[in-house]
Amino acid sequence: MRYFEENPEIFAALVAAIAILGGLLGSIIGAKIQANGGRDQAAAAREAATIAAEAQRVAALWTVRQIQIAEFIHSARELVRLSALLYRISDDDAEAARDRRNAAYQEMSLRSAEIRLIAPKDVVSAVFATVGAAMAVSDHAQQYSPVFRARHALTDLAITGDDTSVDAARRALRALDEVSGDIFDVDEALQAVPGLSNRHISILALHSVERTSQEALRQKMDEVELVFVRVLEKLVDAARGMLKSEDDVAPTVPAQRRRWWRRAARRWGVTAASS
């Protein structure tokens, strides 16, 4: 200390040098803290962008799945509805109804193919089961609805025809209901009904060869439609699980973690709680 007292100019120079070095050191430390904070901020920003992008992807996928499943269910129900309609309409309207049914089938096939690309396996399996059940309804209608329409025409003659037509139509109905009866007797009875078209005679006679009663056909029709309803319910359950319909499905973005602030706070001795 005496040396510095005797040489004040050296002491002043030393103090100045220390001040300069301290300033440089402070600048270096500050720059390092700032750089680290900037990197942490950039990392946090990238993380937030990644989370937001994932949330958008999940929301978009949820929307696509919901729309495709809803449209598939609508097309499958429409196919079944139009198939069931074939049993009740007239022959004149049957061709237009078949065209609409075919269009519903094409729509259902398209939607099922799209769902296969975006849905989990359990939903895809339920969709394929629904397609099979809907096609069973459609195939039964395709094969047997002409028999129902011909039978309706014969029944109408048994109710509204003249005396000759009524008696002949009733005899033909009894012959058709006798599944174990003689096929030639059935054909003869049908040929004897005035007003019954050759097409209806041919359809009913051909069906009688199968020896399947009208009641058995009706039971089969009800059976395939019931299977479709049950399979569709399973699809709806699987789809609700996929879409998390019982939960809050709105995608949320977690709050950005301020890692750069916590690190800076630790460097300056500030606790996270006080921040």
Rank of each mutant, 00 (worst) to 15 (best):
M1N: 10
P8G: 00
E9K: 01
I10F: 06
F11E: 05
L14Q: 02
L14C: 08
A16L: 06
A19D: 05
G22I: 00
G26W: 15
S27H: 13
A35G: 07
N36F: 09
R39Q: 15
D40P: 02
D40Y: 10
A45I: 05
R46C: 08
R46Y: 09
R46Q: 12
A49E: 14
A49Q: 12
I51H: 13
L61G: 08
I67E: 11
I69S: 08
E71Y: 11
H74F: 15
S75L: 09
S75W: 02
S75R: 09
R77M: 08
V80E: 09
S83K: 03
S83W: 03
A84D: 13
A84G: 15
Y87H: 07
D91Q: 10
D92M: 10
D93Y: 09
E95I: 14
A96T: 11
R100I: 08
R101H: 06
R101A: 01
N102M: 13
M108W: 04
S109K: 14
R111G: 03
S112Y: 08
I115T: 00
D122Q: 08
D122P: 04
D122C: 04
A126W: 00
A126I: 07
A126L: 04
M135V: 15
A136P: 05
V137H: 05
Q143A: 11
L154T: 08
T155K: 12
A158T: 05
I159T: 13
I159F: 09
G161N: 07
G161W: 01
V166R: 06
R171Q: 10
L173Y: 06
D177M: 03
E178T: 07
S180Y: 05
I183M: 08
V186W: 05
V186S: 09
A189W: 06
Q191C: 09
Q191R: 12
P194Q: 09
S197W: 04
R199Y: 13
S202Y: 04
S202C: 01
L206D: 06
R211M: 00
R211W: 02
Q214R: 13
A216E: 10
L217K: 01
R218G: 13
Q219L: 15
V224T: 07
V224P: 06
E225L: 15
E225N: 15
V231P: 01
E233T: 13
V236C: 01
V236H: 07
D237Q: 11
A239W: 04
R240C: 11
M242R: 06
L243D: 01
K244V: 14
S245I: 13
V249I: 14
A250G: 11
T252A: 04
P254T: 01
P254K: 02
R259V: 14
W260R: 01
W261H: 12
R263V: 04
R263E: 10
A264K: 02
A265R: 06
W268R: 12
W268T: 11
W268S: 09
V270T: 08
V270F: 04
T271V: 11
T271R: 14
A272Y: 10
S275Q: 15
